[in-house]
Write a protein that binds this DNA or RNA. Structure first.
Lengths: 349, 349
DNA sequence: ATCGCTTACGATATCGATAACAATCGGGCG
DNA sequence: CGCCCGATTGTTATCGATATCGTAAGCGAT
């Protein structure tokens, strides 16, 4: 009895290799390799033959293999708290813009605002032997810190000013920014200022913003401790709406609220609309981050703006510089770049 | 004269190799490899010794090297139009959730709603020899299509229902969804419905939504052609605001507007607020995508909801299934999964 | 003609892991 | 007691590219 008809197997057309291209072009693999790098010294004619062979075979270079011999993977690991947050995705985009000009590829990971998760991700990323790594945080678990330090690659910490930098830094002080915002509200005449933020200490930037708020009200001699902690980061619009109600119920005399992000500020403002509380008449509301929604909401939302894309651009540039230093065996030269922030006053305060 | 103090060179502590771990643990490299995979058959005692050695040397597995011999890189390439769009970042997140359970890594790329850029990205991604690829589109340049087909790996097209699928599909008909929305507006009594979208044909999903609108107004015998095209995708809140003004000036009798996305709908509504045009009294406004802002804006925005994260989850699952089929030498089994959409009526219409 | 130098290319030895197969050891069983 | 078997571990040969060094040819200067 014959066996059943053989199942039609996938024609897993194994991708062509460089050797096959070489054979077809009548040259050695090494010459193909050179032809496919821009810097290779190859005569015009052989290059033509090689490119023709590449085209005929539909060959695409295998960088996984190349990475092994050249010891440069062309990866840049990037860790962000969340990709749904447009601030961070702007930064990621800035990084991409810079590094892709050098043929580098971003390896993106989400920490979910969690240092433990960050630690796992650092380990997972190092497994791919990236040429450099950019993290969105100045605080790490001891183990994560150790791994970053001993990885032997440039590290850039962004969005923060770490007390004890690992290597390079591109950031700003979230506390100072928040403090400046409170001062501005004070100048405008507000005297009972509350703060709305997340309940978790995982979000270190959020914690810093709260710290800046606390310092400012102390400095100014304003009533302190008027803070509402609500939910895990990222604080949503919904949570902003709930928090503002709590804030006003608990301290009916508050005349202004600083929110940990524009999203919660927006939620708060919309909840006030719904309840007929005028903004800023009954209560002024400010956010953080200058998200698109703050520029187009009505009232437009007072906020602290940071050029997120620029943070990415600068982090990318610094990383490229560091890679260049390594390439040319120059000594390492850790840099700290402080990017500016700006308090933008709009109709919500 | 002595030369200047030698510059302190980087201690580029070359990362430890598996062989070094093996030597330290007194076993062969192969045994280390087995110990570090979960499935490896290794006695408890040797595993202990090996893990100790790993710890002492701070060893992390080099997957680049592993990929070369095992012929599986553990990468899944994912192409999205934009990462700043929370719909797509939700999908990306869903994909990550599924694939990271299998130890796979996402390689993310942005096409900027541009098929040419997509083509370049496909090529760049294939260079990394991913085990599978997920794209957010049903239309591609001929070359991109050819590369995807001949890559010999599972392909999943999402967010669309391609007429001629390459392999697997997880999507829905943007045209149908848009059509359903217009019908719903009709039921509510609106008879002069306009459409606000991007000027570029690059955004194929946007074009499909416009198509659905056009079909619907034809079916219903409503005045047609009341569409405003404005700016390149992604259409921003600002552009939505500008477009609604044009729409109303051009056709003063419009009583409802369908926007290509919630973001432009939000911008339009806020512009109406500013001008004192009641929404939905003067004009009803609907969006697409069920973004967070639509749920918390006031009025809340009528929209078409799709479970974006779920698209990612399902795409991930289908991809894993396909990889499993390959592993077990089962025949390929291209699947098309149509995910539901839902018109959600809120106060803006 | 010789030398020196540049340009274009090939041969070989890796890079660091894993696949595939071989080897060893102990124990169960006829 | 001999044989077979499963569990554990080692050996060897890759995977597909690139680094490095070597070689041959071409060419101008002396």
């Amino acid at each position: 009895m014959k066996p059943p008809r053989p199942t039609p197997r996938t024609i897993t057309k194994r991708p062509a290799t460089m050797a096959e291209v070489a054979a077809r072009a009548g040259v050695s693999a090494m010459t193909v390799s050179r032809a496919l790098k821009s810097d290779g010294a190859v005569s015009e004619e052989t290059r033509r033959k090689i490119l023709a062979a590449v085209d005929e075979l539909g060959y695409v270079l295998d960088l996984s293999a190349g990475a092994l011999s050249s010891k440069r993977t062309g990866f840049v690991a990037v860790l962000v708290p969340s990709i749904n947050n447009s601030n961070f995705s702007d930064t990621a985009r800035g990084i991409t813009e810079i590094i892709e000009s050098q043929g580098l590829q971003m390896l993106l990971g989400y920490t979910d605002y969690d240092m433990e998760k960050e630690e796992q991700l650092v380990q997972a990323m190092l497994t791919r032997r990236p040429d450099g790594i950019i993290v969105t945080d100045g605080r790490h678990t001891p183990k994560a810190r150790r791994m970053l330090q001993s990885a032997g690659i440039p590290v850039v910490e962004t969005w923060d000013l770490p007390a004890d930098p690992i290597d390079h830094v591109v950031g700003f002080s979230n506390a100072e920014a928040s403090r400046a915002l409170v001062h501005r509200l004070y100048q405008k005449g507000y005297r009972n200022i509350g703060f709305i933020g997340g309940a978790s200490r995982r979000d270190t930037r959020g914690a810093d913003r709260r710290l800046g708020y606390t310092r400012a009200v102390e400095e100014l001699g304003l009533p302190a401790g008027r803070t509402i902690s609500f939910g895990n980061p990222p604080i949503s619009m919904e949570q902003g709406g709930q928090a503002i109600v709590h804030l006003i119920q608990q301290w009916p005399d508050v005349d202004a609220a600083v929110c940990v992000s524009d999203l919660s500020a927006f939620g708060a403002i919309m909840e006030c609309h719904r309840r007929g509380w005028a903004v800023p008449g009954r209560i002024a509301i400010a956010g953080f981050g200058d998200f698109e929604v703050s520029r187009w909401a009505w009232p437009r939302i007072t906020t602290v703006a940071v050029d997120c894309r620029n943070i990415g651009l600068e982090a990318g540039r610094i990383l490229l510089g560091a890679l260049d230093d390594i390439q040319n065996e120059r000594p390492p030269n850790p840099a700290t770049l402080i990017v500016p922030f700006e308090v933008i006053e709009r109709e919500s305060t």
